[in-house]
Amino acid sequence: NKFNKELQWATWEILNLPNLNEEQVKAFIDSLKDDPSQSANLLAEAKKLNDAQA
């Protein structure tokens, strides 16, 4: 289903952001699991944090 694909993509993207630490990655992944419908928003937040920590 649509959410599953978005969830998988967002998870992969977050796991490959170079500037997030392990705790941050885990928090984002946990949030994705809690509410897959928010995957696009969570991914945007993760990318923002990644850029801020570059």
Rank of each mutant, 00 (worst) to 15 (best):
A52S: 11
D35Q: 09
A54D: 13
D51V: 10
E23T: 08
E23M: 12
L42I: 13
N41S: 11
E45T: 11
T11Y: 06
L15K: 09
N19M: 06
F28W: 03
Q53Y: 07
K33H: 13
F28N: 00
W12M: 06
Q53T: 05
W12Y: 08
V25K: 14
L43Q: 02
E23Q: 14
D51R: 14
Q24I: 03
W12A: 06
Q24R: 02
A52T: 10
N19S: 07
L7K: 02
Q53P: 03
S39R: 06
E22I: 11
D51L: 13
A54W: 10
N41D: 08
K48S: 10
T11H: 03
L49I: 08
K47F: 11
E45I: 13
A54Q: 08
L32N: 00
N50M: 01
A27S: 08
L20T: 00
P18R: 13
N1K: 05
N19Y: 12
N41A: 13
D51P: 01
A44K: 12
Q38N: 11
L49Y: 04
E22G: 07
A27Y: 15
A27I: 08
L15N: 08
F28M: 04
V25A: 10
E6I: 14
K5R: 04
L49N: 02
Q8K: 09
S39E: 03
T11G: 02
A40S: 11
N21V: 07
K5D: 15
L42P: 01
A52H: 10
S39A: 14
N1W: 00
N16I: 05
N50F: 01
K47P: 00
Q38E: 06
D35S: 07
S39I: 15
E6M: 12
N4D: 15
Q24P: 00
E23V: 13
D34N: 12
L49M: 08
Q53S: 05
K5G: 08
F28S: 01
A52L: 14
I14E: 01
I29Y: 03
K5F: 04
Q53V: 06
L43A: 06
N50H: 02
I29G: 01
N50K: 01
A44W: 14
D35G: 03
E22N: 09
D51M: 13
T11P: 02
Q53F: 07
A10D: 02
N4H: 13
W12H: 05
A44G: 07
E23H: 11
V25E: 02
S37I: 04
L32T: 02
K48A: 08
F28I: 04
Q38W: 04
K33L: 14
Q38P: 01
N21K: 11
S31Y: 07
D35P: 01
K47M: 10
N1L: 03
D34K: 13
L43E: 01
S39K: 06
P36K: 03
T11L: 14
A27N: 09
I29M: 09
L15R: 08
S31L: 12
L42V: 14
K47T: 07
N41R: 13
V25W: 03
E22M: 09
L49T: 06
A52G: 06
L43G: 01
L43D: 00
K2L: 11
S39T: 08
E45Y: 14
S31M: 13
S37F: 07
E6L: 15
L15H: 08
A46R: 00
E45D: 09
K5Y: 06
I29F: 05
N50A: 04
K47Q: 08
V25G: 02
N41Q: 12
Q8Y: 10
N21R: 12
A54E: 09
A44T: 11
E45P: 00
N41G: 07
A54R: 05
W12F: 07
E22T: 11
Q8E: 15
L17A: 01
S39Y: 15
D35L: 05
N50V: 01
S37M: 07
A46D: 00
N21H: 12
E45M: 15
S31G: 09
S37K: 07
A27V: 10
F28G: 00
E13W: 15
N1D: 15
L15S: 08
L15Q: 12
I14D: 01
N21T: 11
D35V: 05
W9H: 10
Q38F: 05
T11D: 01
A10T: 09
W9T: 05
E6A: 07
D34A: 13
A46L: 02
D34I: 10
S31N: 08
E23A: 13
A44R: 11
A10Y: 13
L43Y: 08
Q53A: 06
S31F: 11
D30S: 14
N4A: 07
W9M: 12
A46E: 00
K2I: 15
A10R: 03
E45L: 14
N50R: 01
L7S: 03
L17W: 02
A27D: 06
N19A: 09
T11K: 06
N19F: 12
K26A: 11
N16F: 04
Q8L: 13
N16G: 07
N1H: 05
L49K: 04
W9G: 03
K26S: 06
K33A: 10
L42N: 02
S37W: 07
K2G: 15
V25I: 11
A10E: 02
I29D: 00
L49V: 12
Q8I: 12
P18F: 09
E23W: 15
S31V: 07
I14Y: 02
L17T: 00
N41P: 06
F28L: 04
A40G: 10
L20G: 00
P36D: 02
K48M: 12
P18H: 09
K2A: 15
